[in-house]
């Protein structure tokens, strides 16, 4: 019986692992694997960081005021454009 995951087997479950939606048994297997395998630990840590960076920075993109105004104009909603201009 195989007790330890190899690095390749870890790969398939990695996304669900970092999202915290992987089942307990597989989670434990991954954790015991990365405790001993430095390369995989780095992969898990930098993958988490990669996703975190996109989460953090995506909030910064908001629709510019002029783009919103042109959108409302194009949709023939000019009379509503003022309502939420603070958005």
């Amino acid at each position: 019986m195989k007790n330890n995951l190899n690095c390749g087997a870890l790969l398939a479950s990695l996304s669900e692992y970092v999202d915290g939606i992987l089942g307990d048994a597989l989670c434990k297997e991954i954790e015991s694997h990365i405790a001993d395998c430095d390369d995989c630990r780095v992969v898990v840590d930098t993958l988490k960081k990669t996703i975190y960076l996109y989460h953090e920075t995506s909030e910064k993109t908001a629709i510019p005021i002029d783009v919103r105004e042109r959108l409302f104009h194009r949709l023939d909603l000019d009379d509503f454009v003022r309502d939420r201009s603070q958005l």
Partner: peptide
């Protein structure tokens, strides 16, 4: 209803633009 449509546009315009 144009007011309701305008509200929908405001709720989703940033998401769609991004």
């Amino acid at each position: 209803d144009r007011a309701e449509i305008a509200r929908l546009v405001d709720a989703y315009s940033t998401k769609i633009y991004r």
